[in-house]
Design a protein around this nucleic acid. Sequence first.
DNA 1: GATGGTCACAGCCTCAGACTGTAACCGCCA
DNA 2: TGGCGGTTACAGTCTGAGGCTGTGACCATC
Lengths: 294, 294
Amino acid sequence: MTIELRQVRYFVAVAEQLSFTRAARDLHLAQQSLSQQIGALERQLGVRLFDRDTRGTRLTPAGAAFLPSARDLLDRAEAAVAAVRRAGHSHLELGFLSSTANYMLPAIVRAVRARLPQVTVTTHDLAVADLVAGLRDGRLDAAFTRPPLVADLVTTTIADEPVCAVLPAGHRLAGRDSLRLAELAGEDWVLSPRESWPPWHEKYDRDFAAAGFEPRVVHRAAGVPNLLGLVAAGVGVTRLARSARSIRRSGVAFVPLAGEHAETVLAWHPGRVPAALREVVADLAATVELTELG
Amino acid sequence: MTIELRQVRYFVAVAEQLSFTRAARDLHLAQQSLSQQIGALERQLGVRLFDRDTRGTRLTPAGAAFLPSARDLLDRAEAAVAAVRRAGHSHLELGFLSSTANYMLPAIVRAVRARLPQVTVTTHDLAVADLVAGLRDGRLDAAFTRPPLVADLVTTTIADEPVCAVLPAGHRLAGRDSLRLAELAGEDWVLSPRESWPPWHEKYDRDFAAAGFEPRVVHRAAGVPNLLGLVAAGVGVTRLARSARSIRRSGVAFVPLAGEHAETVLAWHPGRVPAALREVVADLAATVELTELG
DNA sequence: GATGGTCACAGCCTCAGACTGTAACCGCCA
DNA sequence: TGGCGGTTACAGTCTGAGGCTGTGACCATC
């Protein structure tokens, strides 16, 4: 039975700090746990690595001899992990929900190219059902989309933005700073087809029920551009994330709905974690308001 | 959080066998456990290392890229462990119970010098109480002695031999092939002082009680040579491990006591495991009947 | 269709790693 | 000399990971 890298990491931390207390702090674990772990390592090796007393901690000659090898092991392990991750992600297939692609895709691709220059990327502008299918069957490595999705995919929220009522320009409520959903109870509505992604429509049902009305849907159309066109033509109103205004600005007014917001998520299959991509996207999302691009 | 060497070992085993089933067998674990562990590693790395189906297992390009690094990590870890063990045991302080030193010490020292040439050894011929104290306070790395010792030291049995009644030459029972302890109920006895090592004497008490008598101790002397001298002088009988006959052969007769045996143990402090020495001694004990030396 | 082989999922159990609490010891200071 | 602050180690407890067994899904062969 050989040693584990966790033990090596603990040893190196103590060796560098010459203190169990300070090393434990650096390692984010209790001093007592670190003491136990080092003691176990010494028994396992049959070698005392540290001399210690109430005055402090010193490396033994054997401990001092071990330290360079220990550091080398940790460095090589880290390098090997980085290398295999690069090797594993020489290519990424990314799917974007059509309604997010217009503004988010360029920023994501630029960031990936900058941070992961060895990775090539293919992007796909897809409907949500196709994104889910692609993640499940492995054709996509990750997808940028909106929840709710399905239970067997993993998601992390990368942006959050207001949800807006989208009204025809000139609508009597178009000049309001914000609206409540219930104020649109008497309007004609245009929504996407229910079968395009039932989980979303189940959520819409709950939202409308909470607002106390069932929307009078006069037309259904797939895709945000089509919905915006219908609103501009005065066929009805709809409800979209604010970033959708980057798709069409003429003939429509976006008025925030109080208390409502929409998440954008990065989704992936639990068996294929795109670790490097997650990091890049998390960093980008932390520095740029993604929904304001476009 | 980086990977662990255990995971690397599992990966290398599967990569070499191109079979989870065969690799699990080599690793002495269940195929299902190995499958779970490799799956977890892949998720942790965010990289698929193997393609597998019901026909078999193949390395992915990323897995193939990882393999040399993985092997290198394992090799270096093993070398680092070996090196620190050598560094940690450049010198061994070994204690021998006086009654075992005469026959066992040379063989032990020869084996250590052969197998651990980089190790220097200092030997000490001591009474049991001094051996225990030396192990406890760190002056001794290991000791060869007899149980029972104390609960806070670790022991492993390295030899087992018959216990003999030691009778004056010419004693009416000296020609017997074996004796039962109870047959010596009427004899005068010579034993070591109780305070020399109480745990032994407590065991002696139990033994005599089981034999149904309390020995008539007419003289006490410390050390096996002194006891043998007293027996040879006809002062009384005693009981010793058979190997003691190498100390003195004239004037005394060793007759095995049926059903009684004595262990020789290697003892050490749990905080200072002499791993390499254990190995050497275990191998020696497996090939040589230590108690027959002398 | 039965059989044998592969790998993966599910449920369960044990124990290792982590926690908190506290003891023992030492140096410093009033 | 006692109190205080600092160190590391021991003890008891708890949770989750690693391993087990059982079995499913799939494929190739006969």
